[in-house]
Design a protein around this nucleic acid. Structure first.
Lengths: 197, 197
DNA sequence: ACAAAAATTTTCCTATCGGAAAAATTCTTG
DNA sequence: CAAGAATTTTTCCGATAGGAAAATTTTTGT
């Protein structure tokens, strides 16, 4: 009930996007109708935001347009503001501290980023204090900027990375970082969440 | 007409996924009803695949479940090989050279990465030699590891970044990097493609 | 084990979707 | 500029979504 007001706009935007997809391919309503099995009029109305397609029709239409259903929604208005950009200056980060790490998320107030870059410092430690493995659906990329880092991936041998080395892994598998040696280490981590959950 | 047969299955799968999302959060139908503004019965039917939600309702429901609309449609299957990981050692990269850049894609032979990390060197230049802007759907993140870099984003003022600074932007907008000053610059770039298209 | 409460499903009915065909608009071509 | 073709929009109506409330099932407390 709350958002009945702006809903039509979202629908209209979505419609424009549908039309864009169709026209990008140089197809007519008739073409898409044949490819999708939807009535011409239905597609026409959907593109203009006159009606609100059901899941079944959206599903058909996606196939007709030859895109993954999820793709229909991805580049949508609320992805992140198309054309926008943001700069993060060194040291201007929002700090977040845990016993072993100091994390600084780079663009904390930017919505809907496809990836989450973080700068981190790992404190030098006598020996690894085993906290729990971290797990979160998605993929993670880590590059060592300075120092040495041991990466523990659940069920695997530890991996030692030196400055310039990097690792890419499924972040739903338990993982944990620790500075190796007597210096603090600097790392850059980028996470891509798997959508949903 | 063609896919009337499997459509119900897709819808049912989708419904199960909706229920999963709700239960993962420990919410009842009533909870989601309040959060989304949808009737309890509507959510119940949708979860069981009895009805096929319209775009408007899907949109509301996504907000109620606190997920991006696109996330609702992502099949969990095609993440990337679950549990796998890869290490890239400094200097072991596949080199790719253009007049202004030297790029080294970090995990070139790994399939289905959600993001594409690249190490790059920007050659020092007297003044910017204007090649064409680069454009590709998705989002891009750049961090300056060493030196200074000027980032040109189409339609905007150039942005000067020093070591440690970073920028995050919509990569479908034309962009271009150049080393600033008399030294070569080292950068790390991570791209996330927008699916579809 | 039973009663009360909570959660989910079913029923009933109205609003809206979606298809077929007619009407209108836009695009070609002489 | 006009006639005809191609494309899009509108109209009309049957099919289905979606809300309110009753009925059922499941859970909780004693």
């Amino acid at each position: 009930m709350t958002d009945t007001l702006d809903a039509p706009n979202a629908r209209a935007d979505f419609g424009r996007r549908l039309r864009q997809l169709r026209q990008d391919r140089g197809w007519t309503l008739t073409d898409v109708s044949q490819r999708s099995g939807l009535a011409i009029s239905t597609i026409s109305k959907a593109e203009r935001g006159v009606i609100s397609l059901t899941y079944d029709r959206l599903s058909q239409l996606a196939r007709g347009l030859d895109v993954d259903l999820a793709a229909l929604f991805h580049a949508e208005g609320h992805s992140f503001e198309p054309g926008s950009f943001a700069v993060a200056r060194k040291g201007e980060f929002k700090r977040q501290e845990t016993p072993n790490y100091v994390y600084e998320m780079l663009f904390p107030d930017m919505w809907n980023k496809a990836m989450t870059p973080m700068m981190g410092s790992l404190k030098a430690r006598e020996f690894v204090q085993f906290e729990d493995f971290v797990r979160h659906p998605g993929q993670e990329f880590l590059v060592v900027l300075d120092g040495s880092v041991t990466v523990f991936v659940e069920g695997r041998e530890p991996v030692l990375l030196n400055a310039g080395d990097s690792i890419y892994f499924d972040s739903s598998v338990g993982h944990l970082y620790a500075s190796d040696g007597d210096r603090d280490a600097r790392i850059l981590v980028v996470c891509v969440p798997s959508p949903g959950v």
